[in-house]
Structure formats: structure tokens, C-alpha cells
Nucleic acid binder design. Structure first.
Lengths: 227, 227
DNA sequence: GCAACATGTAGACACTGTCAACAAAAAGGT
DNA sequence: ACCTTTTTGTTGACAGTGTCTACATGTTGC
């Protein structure tokens, strides 16, 4: 407390690295770098401040808490993710487009595993439920859902069918992305070639499941040969 | 350092709660309680010690680090999980048995969401990769894999097919469990009834996908009508 | 009884998120 | 111009964490 007084004044002037103009933006960027390098649990407010050469409390002028910063980053990840899906090679045929979407989904998960985990593998911080985060997340899901709705038409009940198919596809894709990311397959001593063939096999199984008509209302009978 | 000497001696004698006999076991139990209540990130070594009325360093006599404690807990979760799967209602028919397995899988994930997340949603701590943990985890997977191997027989190449099917099923189940646990569906404004019908629909889609023969070697053609 | 060892304790250290008090600077009104 | 208000950044705390070291205690084998 009783330190040199004038020293502080000088220090603000002889600051080694220029203080970023838009500090809020700089915080987000620095935090995203940390997350991309070391994952969510490696993110610390003080570390962000340190990287920017500012005091450990400065970020709190722009984000109420660590969770608020995290929520903002998640929001941007969802936006990135959605535009990644939007950038897929387009096709007029809805089925081919769906396949391209699946490829893009898995490619994103493979390319940015830590961001993927942040969005889909981390429990959402409480402040996340309010902001535009939900909107951005839903928008990503809607890219998938809209395709299925086009394929199913809008006859009564078909909206629910499209949603169910969307959830099924999402489950399979997310399951694979999540399992692959965890490297669990390394432990399972799978038969040779399985690791390499997994993605295509899964995509084709999804396609096959979509071909077969399945009545959502019917009782959960097993050995469903035909219907 | 220079504190009262005799005081410490007395305190050990007038200990309020009896020190647990098997401290290692007590640590594991206390830690599992914390995890079941507040999740992995809520687990703290000092909290465990506090609950047991011991010093904050005592647990370190039995676990090298927090990660080692976590690894031991994960190991037990996998063992629990495997015996949960083993306790499914048995059926002589492999398909019915497979369905029962799927139900058991999802029931476990729903009943113990935090343990499920610990096993399948948290990056494994380094010490987890060595011990019997992997063996317990693989054993759980083998319950699924063995069923598929029985169904496919042991003709050449069928082992890989069984592994691929296992991975596909696991992906879909894990995806659903993971998505359901995240309560993401609450945000998606799904058509009415979709939430309730999701599980059965997914199980039937998996069944349908397994019926349709899919050649793992074929090129990833779309619109796969028949082959 | 005594030495070796296992176990539990106490006190540090560096780190975290966050609160409160303060200083500087920018904005706005006159 | 000056003065006030608000925004922004800094400093110093506080309680919490994992883990190191040093110490005390209890247990076991000789």
C-alpha cells in the first residue's frame, strides 16, 4: 500500500505493451486462445489479464464474472459453428446436402475439439441461458432441422417426425464426435481398419436408418423385420 | 511453527467424530458423494478431508494427487456401470438382449448423470490411463461388443463388422444420453411429443439401421436405395 | 525397549475468483 | 474554461484451492 506514489503514474505512461483499444474484444480473443490451447478448465481471468498486460481486475469491467466471459465465448463458438455448417459444399438434393452437413459437423469437431467440447460437453454456465447464446445454438440446430422438414413436407405430424430425425442424427453425430475426441477407441483394441472406417460406416448407417420408415407411435417391438 | 505444543496432543484425543478406520475407503466414499451432489468440478481434496474430520493433508497419504483419487473413482464408476449393464433383464434372443442393453445404458445415464459425465464427458486425468481403469472401461464396452460378435458369427471380416456396429450403437446411445443430460432439448422448441418419443424412436432407428446390410468397404455413396 | 515405518497434522506457497476502495480519464453540462 | 458525473483501470484484500515440506504420532518388527 505505502509504495512509491509517483512510480505508479509513470508506469501508466511507460506501459510496455500498448493497452488494447477495445479491451472487451481483446479479452474475448485472449480467452479464446487460451481455450483453444488448454481447454476450458485452463482458462483463468487472471491469465487473460496477464496476457493483455492489464491488471487482474480490468476484465471485470467488461464481464461480470468468469461465467459471463465464458458465455460470450460460447455464443461466438456457436456462431462460428453455424457458419462452418453453412459453408458446406451445397447441393440441390436434400439427401446429399444432409450428408454434406454431417461431414461438416464431424470435420468441425475434429478440427476444433476444444471449442466443440466447450459447446457440447461442458455444463452451461447459468448466465448462458439468458443472452443470445440460446438463439445462436438453436440456429445451428435449425440448419439440420430445416433440411429434414423440407424432406418430410408439412403434412400433419411430419413436423414431429422431422424433429425426431434431427435428434437421431444429432445423437449419432455428437456421439461419434464425442467418442472420437475422447480417444477411447485407442483402448478398445478394435479390429484392424475399424478406426479408419468408422466415420463412413456411421454415416451410411444413419442414411440407412432414415430410409427405413419407422412409426414413432408404434410400441417398441424388437426384431422389426418389416412393417 | 512456534505454536502451543501440548494443545495439539490434547486435541487428537478429544476428536469430535471418530476417525474412520479405513481412511482410503472413506475418502473414496466421501468423494463419490460430493461428485454425485455437485459434479466433478465441485470435488475438492480439502472438502473431502473436512467431511471426514481429518486434516487437509491426510487424503494425500492414500492418493498421490487429486487426479489419482479421481482415477480411482472413475474406475469404480466403470465397474458399477458394467454391473448395471450385467443386471439387465436377460433374454436368450440376442436382439432382444441388445435392446435391453440399450435401455439399461440410457437408464444408467438418466439415473446417475454426474457419474455418467465423469466417465464419458470428462477428459481422463493422466493417472487414469494406467491402472485397471482401462480394463474396467473395456469390460463395459465388451458387454456390447460380445453381443454383436455372437450375432455376426466369426466368418472372416465379421469381427470388424461387429466392432463397427458396436461403435455405431455406442455413438447413438452416448449421443442421446449426452444431449438429454445437457437439457439442450429444452431450448429447441421441439414439436409436441418429441421429447417423450425420442428414446423409443432412437432405439427403433438403431434397430432399423442394424437390419439393413451396409458394406463397410463400399464408397460413401448417398441415396443408398438398395445394394 | 527401540528403531523403522506408516499415518496424520500444521504451516507454508502459489494460484484462483471476486469484493471494496481508490485513481485516472472521458463525457457532459454550464 | 471549469466542474461534476460516469466510465474504466489499478491495488489490495479475502477465502478458497492443490500440493510441498517439516513435524508429530501411532504401529510394527526385532
Amino acid at each position: 500500500m505505502g509504495v512509491v506514489k509517483a512510480g505508479a503514474k509513470v508506469r501508466t505512461r511507460v506501459r510496455p505493451t500498448a493497452r488494447p483499444a477495445d479491451l472487451r474484444e481483446a479479452c474475448v480473443q485472449a480467452a479464446r486462445e487460451v481455450i483453444a490451447e488448454r481447454g476450458v478448465e485452463g482458462l483463468s481471468m487472471r491469465d487473460v489479464a496477464r496476457r493483455l498486460g492489464i491488471s487482474h481486475q480490468a476484465p471485470y469491467r467488461h464481464f461480470e464474472s468468469r461465467d459471463h466471459l465464458l458465455a460470450e465465448i460460447m455464443r461466438r463458438c456457436f456462431a462460428d459453428f453455424a457458419s462452418y455448417l453453412d459453408a458446406r459444399p451445397r447441393s440441390a438434393d436434400d439427401r446429399e446436402d444432409l450428408a454434406a452437413m454431417g461431414e461438416a459437423y464431424l470435420a468441425y469437431a475434429a478440427a476444433k475439439p476444444l471449442e466443440y467440447r466447450l459447446m457440447f460437453g461442458t455444463p452451461w454456465p447459468a448466465p448462458a441461458h439468458h443472452a443470445g447464446l440460446v438463439a445462436d445454438a438453436v440456429h445451428a440446430f435449425d440448419i439440420l432441422r430445416n433440411n429434414l422438414r423440407r424432406q418430410h413436407g408439412d403434412a400433419p405430424g411430419m413436423q414431429a417426425r422431422a424433429d425426431l430425425d434431427s435428434m437421431f442424427i444429432w445423437s449419432a453425430l455428437h456421439g461419434m464426435a464425442s467418442i472420437t475426441r475422447s480417444q477411447a477407441m485407442d483402448c478398445l483394441q478394435l479390429a484392424p481398419g475399424v478406426g479408419a472406417a468408422f466415420k463412413d460406416y456411421l454415416m451410411r448407417k444413419i442414411g440407412a436408418a432414415l430410409e427405413v420408415p419407422v412409426d414413432p407411435g408404434a410400441p417398441p417391438r424388437r426384431k422389426a423385420g418389416r412393417r
